[in-house]
Design a protein around this nucleic acid. Structure first.
Lengths: 219, 219
DNA sequence: ATCTATCTGTGAAAATTTTCACAGATAGGC
DNA sequence: GCCTATCTGTGAAAATTTTCACAGATAGAT
């Protein structure tokens, strides 16, 4: 085992990765931990500590070499391995995901969409192949799909996840407000829209000056 | 000061709140920490510890009274205070947010939408009043809007946030991939779609069995 | 080559968060 | 009332994560 990297560190490094991606086509070739702090809010010493977990990278008076650091993160986390994804549930949110430029620009290919409503699918205007939900297991396997975005109605979320898992899915991004909790080695990232609202409310109520992030985990 | 509640605890309690909301219209009137663990994945002792931070609630052989616990969380975090929200950027993702049932059902009112493209707004079919982005500051103030969802193009994210803040916004849910980092007491929850994909990749690469959450921080 | 200013890398300390273990409380049966 | 089974509440221990402080490294100037 190559040494365990703590989850908060993984999250921060992915955030830094995006910054590097922006900066890569910029004027300078390097960036310091202090500059990373200014742009991301992650304290400089934490940035250094996190990066040091990746093994060493030659330093310098200038800070980190942007390209070098980016590649190091990319390799460590296998971000360069191409991943195929699908979207299940093609109402407004699901459709927005199917056509999401951010996702496509980052190199993640969305290769299929699923919905239980065949009429709706026939009306949709997209190049991505669409299938009825009863074909999920079959198509996930056939297309070797790694990741799925779940945007179905809450009452369908669990069975949708189970179909995906039977098809061999590796990771799920779950937009439904149902807590998906599997023993297996399926990784689920939950994006709870409503909870983000509640967290804003809660943070205002408790102090008004918490830090506000988590990705989170997550929406 | 009423005692500081750690942020991870706030996030878990909001998750538990949702579970209670589901269970409230169920058959039983109470739920134990063990049952909460089974449904949320949060360990029972952590559940108890978290709940104990809220001050005491009479216990019993049966576990927690669902209604009582729900009210306690609601009051502690002022989740019952009505909040008015808006959406800035009405492309597919923004429109999906404007019409999102989850948000509405949870009692959060979306009272305005903003977009820089006036033609697009005229074509949209919604009862929610829509305004051009140059009116953000004015309208946020006029409607006393508390929260905003930012779904604009990355290059517009920062200036959008600044307009909202000048209008007096209290919290922002940011869907753009730009890191918004303010000194002020504005709370920002970032939902980084692409980062969720990267985190799935990273977690598979590092061990394949990390726990997967945040949002998840954050979506 | 030496000096200086600027950064990183990292062991150790501090802070935070989670886990544990068990005392205390409650409801039901006898 | 008393006993038992089931839970919570919580101080203390353990684990994890963040912060600190400074040694070491590099690049440029003189």
């Amino acid at each position: 085992m190559p040494k365990t990297i703590p989850e908060p560190t993984i999250e921060r490094l992915c955030r830094i990765f995006r910054l590097l991606d922006e900066k890569e086509r910029g004027d300078t070739a390097s960036i310091s931990s202090g500059a990373i702090e200014k742009e991301t809010g992650i304290p400089a010493h934490t940035v250094r500590k996190d990066i040091s977990q990746l093994g060493s990278l030659k330093s310098g008076k200038e800070g980190y070499d942007i390209k070098g650091l980016k590649d190091l993160i990319e390799n460590t986390f296998s971000l360069n391995v191409p991943r195929r994804s699908c979207v299940v549930g093609l109402d407004m949110l699901g459709s927005a995901m199917l056509n999401n430029n951010q996702i496509i620009n980052a190199g993640y290919k969305i290769v299929a969409g699923f919905d239980s409503n065949i009429n709706r699918m026939e009306m949709m205007d997209t190049d991505i192949p669409l299938f009825p939900t009863y074909e999920i297991e079959k198509k996930v396997r056939e297309y070797s799909i790694d990741f799925a975005i779940i945007a179905v109605k809450p009452e369908k979320a669990k069975e949708t996840a189970e179909k995906l898992i039977r098809g061999g899915i590796k990771g799920i991004i779950n937009f439904s407000p149902v807590i998906l909790n599997f023993e297996d080695n399926i990784i689920v990232r939950n994006i709870y829209l409503v909870e983000e609202f509640r967290l804003l409310s809660a943070m205002i109520a408790t102090t008004g000056k918490q830090k506000g992030e988590k990705n989170e985990e997550s929406v």
